[in-house]
Design a protein around this nucleic acid. Structure first.
Lengths: 225, 225
DNA sequence: GCGAATTAGTAACAATTCGCTAATAAAGTC
DNA sequence: GACTTTATTAGCGAATTGTTACTAATTCGC
């Protein structure tokens, strides 16, 4: 039998490449995504807004290009950046997602940040990329402590819970949240407190990852689907 | 302030593209990956084995190309195939992972299937791709019932558990596994039994996904890392 | 035939975890 | 000082999990 595996190889093909970045930031009670003014000169002229995007420059890697694109678009380096997926089609598009701590009145016009519930007319491709980015981001939240990337070094537990709720898109129960958090030993208390207007002052905590983690348990079939 | 986001755009750049597929199959007590004889004509000639790979052909999409590459390499279409990650570098490589139900004495030379514990000398890139594919596969196992793709329509619970153990790379407790499984209602019993040599015959089950799933619960901080 | 070995399947118990309610604490407001 | 607001923790009942041990049905050796 001929070896189809290698005999079927064709000469490397070149494709046009784009790297798109879905930057997310907390904005009130929802996440906002950074949109740039679209190419007005385009033929159809329908897409007024697009995701920050560029192609590779020089000898930079994909991660480096994504970091550069994110930095140029947001005015500062994102505190977390990771690849979400690659879409084929007319041109190859590698989609990244990133987290930006607080864009309110930052270096860039805050009008570029658009809440996820009020997205303007976007191309199908861009809307799909945002979906993919959200899915990848939520998968990371469950496996990696990226929520802390959206907070300063010292934060209150209410702030931390609010970030988790934003990222996951659902409410969490306060007592349960804190119990799980304390059991995980991901944070440690400082001796500082912060009074935020009315109500009892909240103690400040800092992120303090444990040396070794616990072993994971059985299969959670209820998470399947 | 000038709009750096769009003014910094450069003209789309072309790169060479490769699509690599990490095909996995059960093989005794571990998973095996499909390796093809490497390009002997290469300059260094070090890499004797490579992953099935090709570039895009015609107007096919990434997914279609990966399916074609997998089919050509394994002799049959994989029962599951999904994108793992994209690696940059000299050429852009989109890595897919796939599951193949049972390659024992199948259409292709079974010598191509190599157990994960006995991988031959591979390029750094290929080894990295296998790592990435395993990570993506295990993330999928937790969220999607892909384990059933490695089994025939009717299977015993011991077989199902063995598949989960292979995919996750760790042992599971029998009683807990079955309790979770029954609670999930992912399988339904048939009225058939199978006697596998010695020991009590096992009842056969079939995959029967429930109409609606349960809501997911709080954060599992113990899974972070 | 009969007991040992082997594999399948389940019951039951203890410990842990989870979702929730309620209690207490410490501030500001009137 | 009473009332409101936010933070924090205690505690309870229910559900889940990890484990051991038991029962069931078959083959193997004699």
């Amino acid at each position: 039998m001929p070896d189809r595996t290698s005999s079927s190889r064709t000469t490397p093909r070149t494709v046009t490449l784009a790297i798109d970045v879905v930057l997310l930031t907390p904005r009130g009670s929802e996440l906002a995504v950074l949109l740039a003014p679209g190419d007005v000169g385009k033929a159809r002229g329908r897409e007024r807004w697009t995701l920050p995007s560029d192609t590779l420059r020089g000898e930079e890697s994909l991660d480096e290009a994504a970091a550069r694109i994110a930095r140029d678009a947001a005015g500062a380096a994102p505190s977390f950046l990771d690849q979400a997926a690659t879409l084929g089609g007319a041109q190859l598009t590698v989609t990244y997602f990133g987290l930006v701590p607080d864009a309110g009145g930052g270096a860039r016009r805050s009008a570029d940040w658009v809440g996820l519930s009020e997205l303007p007319a976007l191309g199908v491709r861009h809307r799909e990329e945002i979906e993919v980015a959200m899915t990848a981001m939520r998968a990371r939240v469950d496996q990696h402590p990226i929520a802390f990337r959206l907070l300063p070094a010292a934060f209150t537990l209410s702030e931390l819970q609010a970030v988790y709720e934003l990222l996951l898109g659902r409410r969490l129960h306060k007592a349960s949240f804190r119990r799980s958090l304390h059991a995980s030993a991901l944070v440690e208390a400082t001796d500082e407190w912060r009074s935020e207007g009315r109500g009892r002052p909240a103690q400040l905590f800092r992120y303090a990852p444990p040396r070794r983690r616990r072993q994971r348990r059985g299969i959670r079939f209820d998470l399947l689907g």
